[in-house]
Design a protein around this nucleic acid. Sequence first.
DNA 1: ACCAAATGTGACTCTTAACATCACATATTG
DNA 2: CAATATGTGATGTTAAGAGTCACATTTGGT
Lengths: 142, 142
Amino acid sequence: MSVKSVQFAVATHLMAALGIYPGGEVGSATLAESVKANRTFVRKSLSKLSKAGLVLTTRGKSGASVLARPPKRITLLDIYRASGAPPAFAIHSYPVEKRCPVSCNLKECMSAVLSQAQKSFEKSLANITLADFIRQIRAKGH
Amino acid sequence: MSVKSVQFAVATHLMAALGIYPGGEVGSATLAESVKANRTFVRKSLSKLSKAGLVLTTRGKSGASVLARPPKRITLLDIYRASGAPPAFAIHSYPVEKRCPVSCNLKECMSAVLSQAQKSFEKSLANITLADFIRQIRAKGH
DNA sequence: ACCAAATGTGACTCTTAACATCACATATTG
DNA sequence: CAATATGTGATGTTAAGAGTCACATTTGGT
């Protein structure tokens, strides 16, 4: 029903790191060390955040990334959407048995249910700002 | 972040079919025709629903399944849980970079966020009964 | 102008987990 | 006890995410 994807968690990690790092300018190599993930993978994630307008990236020598807005004005929903994570809920793609009314209508009814579920999921993400999230990380100490 | 799984959709399909079928006793072969999925797969799904107490199954010759309770008293959350669908949201499993406070605390903070999201997702499923769902299917006609 | 060092991206491989399928155990009716 | 259900472990298949490589592109410094 869903796709195991790390995109959202990694994107959030990157955003939190950018928000916490003093000065705020961080290169992708440093970020990759923090996430301990593949550099190319991190660059790709950063690129998405950049395209979504959450991060400003400079290229060339001494290139780096900065948050495009203060953390208060970025929600986890923004990050989720930017991360390109696939929709959390999916339906099967079996053929339809035309003689069966359940089979005929299930997909339509099911996708109504799932899109409602997706909305309530997104709503809960919209209620958390990056600033909140960073505060929680700081609260746990080091 | 999630796992593409068809379990929930199939389980809902089965429950709706059992609820709609006149008399209510249906064999797994008939159900498999409606879903147009593999018979073994359907039996396994039914088995889970049975173990969860949503369905009563009789074995042996003339074996079949019936809803254990009236559709009004079954929610889609019951079905979701019974379906054994993996948690909709997951975190990566990269190692922790101990020098980085973000890396150290991310998993914990992230799983708090995700479990909250999961809860709000489940809440929206809890608000829909199987009877509601069947009504929606019927409303679409055949 | 050129080199060094960074990001951006397309292409390919590797890995994993869900689904499909098979084989057979188990249960029940007539 | 034979016929016909369901239950389930084992194994094969496959699709999608993640890892990796190669190289283009951008930009600052000498």
